[in-house]
Amino acid sequence: MIIDDIKHFLKAQIISCDETKKGQVIIMVAPDAIATAIPYLFKDKYLRFMTITGIDVRQYFELSYHFSDDGTGTIISIRTRLTDKSFPRIASITHIIIGANWIERELHEMLGIVFEGHPNLKHLLLSEDWPAGNFPLRQNGQSDGK
């Protein structure tokens, strides 16, 4: 039901929608659609924000915004791909969801993704003198930093 509403709202912005997995619906959108999809899910549908997962898949970065539909126990993942690996960037959602502040900072330091419009995009977990350009969770980075 919620899925149908989301499909209806986003319409052509949806690239694909995978409902085959048990307990999870994956909706693939373009990076620009995040700015419209997230407020809809969070503010209009009252879905609970869980977290953002960032993956380095060699050709591109993949971000999944996980929301939980607490009534049915389904996880709705809005997924997008950042193809520009030299300068990955996407609009921040911190002004919509306060709870996304830390996870965006974490993704910034771990994968080097720039969240545009984030109020305080500095190190969260790593020390301040961590070498710039060394992103631990990137597949090709020097991961041990030693």
């Binding site: 869980m50 977290t51 997962t53 960032g54 993956i55 380095d56 999944s64 996980h66 939980s68 306060i98 709870g99 502040n101 830390w102 996870i103 969770l137």
Partner: peptide, 28 residues
């Protein structure tokens, strides 16, 4: 709620393992 996300390829190890502990949200 403790949340784990795992992605695998054909090997015997995960490609990506995302962990979100409950306190990560609660402490904020």
């Amino acid at each position: 709620e403790c949340f784990h996300y795992i992605r695998t390829d054909k090997t015997n190890r995960p490609v990506r393992h995302k962990i979100r502990a409950p306190s990560f949200m609660n402490v904020a």
